[in-house]
């Protein structure tokens, strides 16, 4: 099958997937008992005001919450298609605005985390495999297991604690106070860099440890294969030979888990965003879920899904690039 056709088929299945995911996302945000009108009333009452039943009904009618679920879905998805993501009741602003100002940070953190993961894991994995059972190999292994076993939020708290007590810097958020609302400048960008490494390390450590183990195991397996000896027999230098042949083949499982790795990062991000009080979509998403701000929560859930789908799409394309067997649909 020609490559272009494969990509088109892949895109088509992604589109179908997207529809299915939007339905699931909508059902999930509608699942909790009660609706926004109820939680609005509850918050009014808890702050000492009185709300009449008629008022609650009025809100419900105003937002179409009295209609059956499937009608609400079609109204919601119809708006989506036209770029109208609905209105966030919690923020009293259109969802597009609320998400729009936070999404770039989320994408930045996710991309940064993936880059960190692969840039660290691949060379360390190669080194570990080539120096199997050396001190460095054992060190990476131990650090890796600790990285895998430590819950992200704990790591976040430890890093924050360490940074404040030993280095006297505040690592919460993504900007220092003076740059919080400033316009973009070199200074602000630098300030961002000094903060963003914390969520990146927190989100990336487990993945790095995991990918390092995969790289090490696959490379060790590849190194024993006949084509490696055959390549050595051509007189190629050891370093070039290892990079060109076994490492190239050992990249396959790494590339194919890219989409999956992104899923882990994205699903881990909201909690970390909350712990580190990041100005990204994480804390906003959690608040929206709590206050049943369903258009905001639904849109965000859909966007997370889209990000994961883009990730696995990229991973599939990359796999086609690195492995001609995948590209050409060969069996061996």
């Amino acid at each position: 099958m020609p490559i272009l056709q494969k990509i088109l088929v892949r895109l088509g299945s992604s589109a179908l997937m997207l529809i299915a995911v939007s339905i699931v996302a909508f059902i999930i945000v509608s699942l909790p008992p009660g609706d926004f009108a109820d939680s609005y009333a509850a918050s009014k009452i808890s702050s000492g005001e009185t709300v009449t039943l008629a008022e609650i009904e009025a809100i419900r009618r105003q937002f179409g919450l009295d209609k059956p679920l499937y009608l609400q879905y079609f109204k919601w998805i119809g708006g989506m298609v036209q770029g109208d993501f609905g209105f966030s009741w919690g923020y009293s602003r259109p969802v597009t605005e609320v998400i729009g100002e936070r999404l770039p940070m989320t994408i930045l953190i996710a991309t940064g985390t993936l880059l960190f993961t692969y840039i660290t894991a691949i060379p360390l994995g190669i080194y570990s495999a080539l120096r199997q059972y050396s001190v460095a190999d054992y060190t990476f292994t131990i650090l890796g297991y600790i990285g895998l076993a430590t819950p992200n939020f704990l790591l976040a708290l430890l890093l924050m604690f360490g940074a404040t007590t030993w280095f006297g810097v505040s690592v919460g958020g993504l900007f220092s106070l003076e740059y919080q609302d400033a316009a973009w400048s070199m200074g602000r960008f630098w300030d961002l860099l000094t903060h963003i490494w914390v969520p990146i390390i927190v989100l990336g450590t487990a993945g790095t440890a995991f990918q390092l183990r995969i790289m090490r195991a696959t490379l060790l397996e590849e190194l024993n294969k006949m084509y490696v000896t055959a390549a050595r027999a051509t007189g190629l230098s050891e370093f070039k030979m290892i990079l060109k042949y076994p490492v190239r083949l050992a990249l396959n499982p790494i590339v194919s888990t890219l989409g999956w790795e992104l899923t882990t990062v994205i699903s881990g991000a909201p909690i970390i965003g909350l712990v580190l009080s990041l100005p990204d979509t994480g804390p906003m998403f959690i608040n929206a879920l709590k206050s049943q701000d369903m258009f905001l929560a639904g849109a965000m859930m859909l966007i997370y899904c889209i990000l994961v789908m883009i990730g696995s799409f990229i991973s599939d394309i990359l796999l086609m690039i690195v492995d001609p067997r995948v590209r050409m649909g060969a069996s061996t």
Partner: peptide, 21 residues
Amino acid sequence: IRAAQIGMIFQEPMSSFSPVH
């Protein structure tokens, strides 16, 4: 010396070549 002066052929033709080059 390898390949230039002494060449070598291996037992398993199926696995003596890298599959991705």
